[in-house]
Amino acid sequence: MTVSPAYPKVQTAPGQPAPRRRRLGRKLAPWLFLAPGALMFLVYVIIPIVESMWISFYQWDGMSAKVWVGISNYLELLDDDAFYTSLKNNIIWLVLYMLAIPFGLLIALFLNQSVRGIRLYKSLFFFPFVISQVVVGLIFSWFYAPGFGLFFELTKWLDGTGIALLANPNTVTYGIIAAGLWPQIAYCMILYLTGLNSVAPDQIEAARLDGAKGIKMLWYVVLPQLRPATFIALVVTVIGALRSFDLVSIMTSGGPFGSSRVLSYYMYEQALSEYGYRMGYGAAIAVVLFAIMMIFISGFIWKMWRDERGL
């Protein structure tokens, strides 16, 4: 036995506009779902960025009263040799870190096969992504260590003396970048493996019927469908190269003689370490790093937008 409701449900006839309350609810629903995320983004991203820009115009040690100095912190950067060394190292990071994208793609193509033992291979290649950057830094520090490190012993076997990679100002940055590429390649590999799962099989079969194979199949059929994964890999790799702090801190602490500093680590030295406590100067370095990052990311977004519109 069913009990009919006391008030019958109001139904609108086809073509008749929905009641005002329902239309208002449909308009407000997306904003209500977005509100928590937008609030957190405002509090933890936008406001700190604006605050950092504001602090960069002050001389401040983090405790005493702020002193307005205008653009003096930015003018000081122009005569700071350590800043130029950090900027040069960031450019080296940015260029060499791009190797993670093609290597990640090649490994993903290899792992996207139905062969015996492929799950074991996937686990081995996936392992660097799940471990902490601190652990990666320690592993490679031991790998490069003079006296007992595997790299040092191999080079000693080749040239008789051995290469202390992290002790040489000319090679230390490249040694740290090699450590960073290990997990970054794994991350790009995961992005491309996900993208390969969405490649349309009918397009692959059609290309095979037309005689496409090998490089032509990859260039003209597979890569165009992997464009979203490539865009994400580019953005993440650029961000990873520009915010390379943890590996530098763990492996060299900016040494030897400050030769492995990057902008993020130099910002930390100036603002928060015992050598500085210059919050305004550190904020100026952070603003420069943020501007460089936004130039690259904005360029990628603009290029993707033009490609989507076919311009």
Score class of each variant (00 low, 15 high):
A35Q: 03
L150Y: 09
I49C: 03
W302H: 09
G258W: 08
D80T: 04
N73C: 06
T171I: 02
P17D: 03
C188F: 05
I101V: 15
V43Q: 10
I190Q: 09
W142E: 04
I107N: 02
P36L: 04
W142H: 07
M293N: 13
E153Q: 15
W93G: 13
W305E: 13
W60Y: 04
Q11H: 10
S72Q: 15
A29P: 00
Q59V: 00
K216F: 02
A241G: 08
I177T: 11
I301Y: 10
K122L: 03
M293H: 00
Y58T: 13
I71A: 14
M251T: 10
A233L: 04
S72R: 15
A200E: 13
E308L: 08
K27I: 10
Q203F: 14
K88I: 05
K303S: 10
V134M: 10
Y275N: 08
F148T: 14
T237M: 06
T230A: 10
P146M: 06
L39C: 12
P17F: 06
W31N: 09
L289K: 03
T155D: 05
Y275P: 00
G282A: 05
F148W: 05
F110G: 13
L209R: 11
I131P: 01
F151V: 13
G104M: 10
M217E: 12
D210Q: 06
Q113K: 13
W68T: 02
L247E: 11
S56L: 05
L191P: 03
I91V: 15
A207N: 05
G258V: 05
M294G: 01
R261F: 12
F140R: 05
R21T: 09
L165C: 01
I49V: 14
K213F: 13
L109P: 01
F126S: 12
F83S: 03
A284L: 06
M40I: 15
A206T: 12
W302R: 13
Y281C: 03
F126Q: 02
G70T: 10
L289T: 12
F148H: 07
L42W: 10
I49S: 12
A186V: 04
L226C: 06
A82I: 05
K216H: 09
I107R: 03
L34M: 15
P256S: 14
I190A: 15
E76L: 10
R21W: 05
L193S: 08
M279N: 04
A212G: 04
K66D: 00
L96P: 01
W93T: 07
M279E: 08
P14W: 06
I47Y: 15
F125K: 02
F148G: 00
R261Y: 14
V69Y: 05
T85C: 00
V134G: 02
W302E: 08
